[in-house]
C-alpha cells in the first residue's frame, strides 16, 4: 500500500514542477491565428514599445484557424484570452455572434475603410489577403491563362492540372461560403460538383497548391496572396493572373477584445498597436497582408488590376457557412 501512496504522491509533485509559473504584473494574453513567424516580430515590437509582456497562443495550419476560436468559446465561463487576433474575419464574427466580444475600437484604426469598422465596435478589421490565381508560367500561355475564379471549372487546361485547397477549411472554406452568398447556393453547389466531376485537384491546403504550381504539377490554382508571395519571393516560375469580372475576394484580418478578459487594459493597448499603421506596415512587409489600406504600395501578388474586390456581406457568409461545409463534404468526401 505504501508503494501506491508513494506513486500517488509522485504525480502531483511532478505536475507541480510545471504548474507553478510566475506571471508578470503587466501582461496580455493574445490568441492568434496569424502565422507565428509573422506575428512574433510584431508582438516583440509591442513588448519593446510598451513593456507589457505578451503571452501568445498560436494556431496552426493543422486545425485550420478554428482551433483558437473554438477554444475561446469553450473558455467563455472563465476567459483566458484578452485579445483575439485573427488572420481572417469569419471566426471573429462567429465569436461576436456568440456574444463573446467586448466593444472597443482602437483610436489608431482611424483611416481604415468604413467596412473595416463596424458600428457596434465589437471588432476591427485590419489589412487583408486576397484569393487569387497563381499560374505556372512554363505551362500557361496568354491564350490559356485563366482570368476568373470561374475558370477553374472551364479551361482548355486538363482538369488534373487545375486545383485549389479542399474547400472544407480555412480561407478556401471562407471563399466557398462567399461564392454561396454571391452566386446563390444552387449555382455554387453545381459549380463545385462540376469541379469534382471533372477531376479538378483538391489539395490539403493553400501551401500545397502553391508548391504544386511551383513544381509544375498544376498549371494554375487558387490560393491566398501570402502564399503567392512566398513563391514569387523564391523566384519560382510562377505569376499571378490578372483577374477580371468580380475581382478578387479580399479577406481582412481582424482583432477583438474578449469579453471578461483577465487583462482588459493591456488588451486595449495591444489592440491599439495592432490597429496602427505601423503594425499594418510590418505585416505587409513580412508578407502576411497584401491588402494594406494605409500603406499603399506595389505588391507582387496583388497587381493593380486586383484593386477591385468582391462586395461581401460577411454576416451572410457566416450564416451560410455550416450549409456550405455540409454540402461540400457531401461532394468532396465520398
Amino acid at each position: 500500500m505504501k508503494r501506491f501512496a508513494f506513486l500517488a504522491a509522485l504525480v502531483p509533485l511532478l505536475l507541480a514542477t510545471t504548474a507553478c509559473r510566475k506571471h508578470s504584473p503587466a501582461e496580455v494574453v493574445v490568441y492568434t491565428s496569424v502565422d507565428q513567424p509573422q506575428a512574433e516580430p510584431v508582438l516583440k515590437a509591442f513588448e519593446a514599445r510598451t513593456g507589457i509582456h505578451v503571452l501568445p497562443v498560436y494556431d496552426v495550419e493543422a486545425v485550420k484557424t478554428v482551433g483558437l476560436a473554438n477554444r475561446i468559446i469553450e473558455e467563455k465561463g472563465r476567459p483566458k484570452a484578452d485579445v483575439f487576433w485573427n488572420g481572417e474575419i469569419l471566426q471573429t464574427l462567429r465569436l461576436d455572434k456568440e456574444g463573446l466580444l467586448e466593444a472597443y475600437q482602437p483610436p489608431t484604426a482611424a483611416g481604415l475603410p468604413a467596412s473595416y469598422l463596424p458600428a457596434d465596435q465589437h471588432w476591427t478589421a485590419i489589412g487583408g489577403r486576397a484569393r487569387i490565381l497563381l499560374v505556372d508560367t512554363r505551362q500557361v500561355t496568354p491564350a490559356t491563362c485563366p482570368r476568373s475564379i470561374a475558370d477553374l471549372a472551364k479551361s482548355p487546361i486538363p482538369a488534373n492540372r487545375r486545383g485549389m485547397a479542399m474547400p472544407l477549411f480555412g480561407t478556401a472554406l471562407t471563399h466557398a461560403a462567399t461564392l454561396y452568398t454571391l452566386w446563390g447556393p444552387e449555382k455554387a453547389h453545381a459549380w463545385f460538383a462540376d469541379l469534382k466531376q471533372q477531376g479538378v485537384r483538391m489539395l490539403e491546403g493553400n501551401a500545397s497548391v502553391r508548391e504544386a504550381v511551383a513544381r509544375g504539377e498544376l498549371a494554375f490554382g487558387i490560393l491566398d496572396t501570402d502564399d503567392a508571395e512566398e513563391a514569387l519571393g523564391r523566384g519560382d516560375s510562377v505569376a499571378v493572373s490578372e483577374l477580371d469580372g468580380d475581382g478578387a475576394l479580399v479577406i481582412p484580418g481582424s482583432i477583438a477584445l474578449v469579453k471578461g478578459s483577465p487583462h482588459p487594459e493591456s488588451g486595449r493597448v495591444l489592440m491599439d498597436f495592432l490597429a496602427s499603421p505601423e503594425a499594418e506596415a510590418m505585416l505587409g512587409k513580412g508578407g502576411f497582408f497584401q491588402v494594406t489600406p494605409r500603406n499603399p504600395g506595389t505588391c507582387r501578388s496583388l497587381p493593380s488590376g486586383h484593386a477591385k474586390s468582391m462586395d461581401v456581406d460577411w454576416a451572410k457568409v457566416l450564416e451560410v457557412l455550416p450549409r456550405t461545409s455540409e454540402e461540400l463534404q457531401g461532394i468532396f468526401l465520398k
Binding site: V29, Y31, V54, Y58, V60, E230
Partner: peptide, 18 residues
C-alpha cells in the same frame, strides 16, 4: 497555456511556408 508553444506547433506553423 498562454505564452507556451511546443516544437511541433512551431514546426507546423512554419510548414505553411513550405
Amino acid at each position: 497555456p498562454p505564452g507556451r508553444s511546443t516544437l511541433a506547433t512551431r514546426l507546423f506553423n512554419l510548414l505553411h511556408y513550405g
